[in-house]
């Protein structure tokens, strides 16, 4: 895949995330379609393909989503770490792998956001934050993940397995 294609998709995805998806509130939190898409892309296309998309989507979401681009990039970086699990072939079902990585990446993403907010001041309670949006966000994103994953599998079979595996 050419980088510019991934970069364009990542850019558009970040704008959709910032302007449309943030309006949806499920369990009091907005789903992170961008993160789920990046994880699905990671599982279907591989780590090398997703890293440039993390860079572009993180910076774009930071700029259009009123957040610090650096913090968003840092929050998305654990996806790369979870990508190692894919390469190690520890989990053989791609769907389970997607769900696992989405859950872990969301926890990491929201924790970075929480800590960043706490670091910038205010009277904030970490346990309240975890209870209010970190865990709910992980649940919501996991619920969203199968739809995004199946859409991507339909668009492009996985390189890793060579055949469909759920």
């Amino acid at each position: 895949m050419r980088y510019w294609t991934g970069a364009l998709i990542a850019f558009l995805l970040a704008i959709v995330q910032a302007s449309s998806v943030e309006q949806f509130k499920i369990m009091g939190v907005s789903p992170n379609l961008m993160l789920v898409f990046l994880v699905a892309w990671l599982v279907v296309r591989g780590l090398d393909d997703v890293l440039p998309m993390i860079l572009v989507s993180g910076i774009t979401l930071g700029l259009v989503g009123l957040q610090s681009p650096g913090v968003v990039l840092l929050a998305l970086l654990p996806i790369a770490g979870f990508g190692v699990i894919r390469e190690l072939h520890i989990i053989h079902s791609d769907l389970v792998l997607v769900l696992f990585i989405v859950f872990g990446s969301t926890i990491a993403y929201e924790m970075v956001m929480l800590l960043s907010t706490m670091a910038s001041g205010g009277t904030l309670d970490i346990m309240t934050g975890i209870e209010s949006f970190v865990i709910p966000a992980a649940i919501v994103n996991v619920a969203l993940a199968p739809f995004v994953y199946f859409f991507m599998r339909f668009a492009k079979p996985a390189k890793r397995m060579g055949q469909l595996s759920f």
Binding site: D48, L51, P52, G58, G70, L74, L77, A80
Partner: peptide
């Protein structure tokens, strides 16, 4: 290549912050 990309993103994150 993956390591280089990951390192670059991490450095970019801190630089942007």
């Amino acid at each position: 290549r993956t390591l280089a990309w990951t390192s670059f993103i991490a450095i970019a994150a801190f630089a942007l912050m």
